[in-house]
Nucleic acid binder design. Structure first.
Lengths: 341, 341
DNA sequence: CGCTTTTTCTAAATCGTTTTCTCGCATCCG
DNA sequence: CGGATGCGAGAAAACGATTTAGAAAAAGCG
């Protein structure tokens, strides 16, 4: 790899100056087309590949986007919902000539803070996919002036791409309500904007329809924590006044809850109904298939990518604090049945 | 971000030369400890962050590792098995001061070939997680002299970290056999080294135990292609001489096959048994839980990371073509029952 | 005190680009 | 024919770090 050819080598081969070669490669006006063609031909023959470090050093951009993907549970890439978003984001930015690099989120000793990592690597922008938004370090980054797009968390000054938690959850509740359910238990995730949005939807909906919300119908379960979900499922099933439907914070816990019910010979949806959230693959695989909200991860990724790059390439044009809401849709599935009077 | 402080600024502030500052920061011997401390203090006060591009340009390393993650189906990061490996790999290399960047695998117009991307970005090494190994482009990269570690594919000249496909599949078969199964159908993935290793294990095992392998017991299904798996499941269930157990190429297709059986009121494992492969989360969530091979993705990721960095930092020490075999283990689950005579 | 040796620092070259400035030369026009 | 215009090319100065060679200062030593 050491012997890579540089502009200087091409200049020598063509008997021109380095600057002329550079201009020819960048298609600048002040090189005659004859020379341009010759230089490019020679460059091709010599297998010239530009040196990213050199041009990034000289230019003021790197075409590299940093990605912060960190959450308590350390699920990282194995969190299917975020993986889907990231996949779509990656494709989008790649098409526009960018590359993505993960910020170091570990707690190794010599590690830089997010902001320092960004200064060090000169990322053109940053995508924050999943993180503890109250982390000191993250706030330091967000208050710097590097373009940032955040998924599912509203921040003044930054673009936010968010699923329509409130609206989607209402749609799901409407779906459940329309099938006759009135006693609806709700297991929500850990406190976060996403969780709060959905919880508001639940409380509003129940209130508007004059439905009771007893304490034993509302629980907290960390997202994707199947152990906890299983325990809660058992608790709910044991209630004297059992709900007719349980809403889970995500498809993984919902599928797991379903498993518990099957083990306990509680039939779904005949004896009890349940619904998940996200629309990951498992939702369509278990039987009965999960009723869930299918989030439009492709759209989220595309919009995040485009907004971020627009912010980078056309600073000041996008309005500050812009929030893009992406609607999900109810995936009917089979896990919510009709309640007969 | 523009106003970042450089060595020159520190030099000015300390009234010393740039080179002295550089040496102080790199803890070189020929700077008095008094000056060293002063310079470092000032650097800290001025919030100095080195410029990655500049040092990478000057040095011969970037501490950046390229990752090639590409497969036909475009599942990319959403492929849980690979996501788990990547997660573990990322943590490992981060701890050793490296960062990972994805190679552009799209087919956008101006895209560079893998080799050119590596030359351009000056990656210190490359991890090939999942790719079409017969792709012209990949071969071009592999024949260059950049350190490469490949997952689950043996290549002379390169380090390979591989699950013990042959051994693991034999263990799974033994588990099934021990429970009385003699008529075992086998659905294998698309042709690849992984597939071939497992298929050999199946054929060898069946042969050694004098078990018949009728044509209707062996099928091909692309990994994670649930539609195809569902169709095959129905086909197998309809066979006049139905097998007592079906082995699927992965947990996703197995879980999906299980769903089909449930829909058809075929009881698992009473009427028929089945097993998956990989040990992803879904395996422990469906009921009955899947009998499967739990691959040690954490170990695979750690070893891949360490081997790659060793190759980078101590070239020539690792022997060429080294293959590391990582054993998986049988996860008993509940989807394989005992066959009674 | 002179000489060598060691310590501590600086100047300058380098990595491979990009860009600005200048200059030579041809062309055009009055 | 002389001055303005424009084109094409090169020289040189960046970008920010590292490193080498060498100079100045300090220390050791007979």
């Amino acid at each position: 790899m050491g012997e890579s050819v540089s502009l200087k080598d091409i200049a020598k081969a063509c008997n021109v100056s380095v600057s002329t070669v550079s201009k020819a490669m960048n298609d600048r006006a002040d090189v005659s087309s004859a020379k341009k063609e010759e230089i490019r031909r020679v460059a091709r023959e010599m297998n010239y590949v530009p040196n990213y470090m050199a041009s990034a050093l000289k230019n003021q951009y790197t075409r590299n986007i940093g990605v912060i993907l960190a959450e308590e549970a350390g699920q990282g890439l194995t969190h299917e919902h975020f993986a889907k978003i990231l996949n779509s984001f990656k494709d989008t930015v790649e098409e526009r000539g960018y590359v993505i690099t993960f910020l170091n989120t570990s707690n190794s000793p010599g590690r830089f803070s997010y902001r320092k990592q960004c200064q060090y690597m000169k990322y053109d922008g940053v995508l924050v996919v999943c993180a503890d938004y109250h982390q000191q370090e993250l706030e330091e980054l967000l208050s710097s002036n590097i373009p940032v797009v955040v998924i599912d968390h509203t921040l003044k000054k930054h673009v936010n791409i968010a699923s329509n938690q409130y609206g989607d959850m209402r749609r799901l509740l409407q779906f459940v309500f329309d099938r006759g359910h009135r006693k609806i238990a709700y297991i929500h995730g850990k406190n976060s904007e996403v969780t709060r949005g959905r919880l508001s939807a639940y409380l509003d909906f129940m209130h508007e329809h004059h439905l009771p919300v007893p304490k034993e119908y509302v629980y907290t379960c960390p997202y994707r924590d199947v152990e906890r979900a299983n325990a809660l499922t058992k608790a709910v099933l044991a209630l004297p006044d059992r709900p007719t439907c349980i809403l889970y914070p995500d498809d993984l816990t919902a599928a797991s809850g379903l498993g518990v019910m099957q083990e306990m010979k509680v039939r779904v949806p005949e004896d009890i109904s349940l619904a998940g959230y996200d629309g990951i693959r498992i939702a369509g695989i278990v039987r009965p298939r999960l009723t869930t909200i299918r989030q439009d991860t492709v759209s989220i990724g595309i919009q995040a990518g485009n907004k971020l790059i627009n912010r980078i390439e056309f600073p000041g044009i996008e309005t500050d604090g812009e929030t893009v809401i992406v609607d999900g849709m109810v995936e009917p599935g089979e896990s919510v049945g009709v309640v007969r009077k």
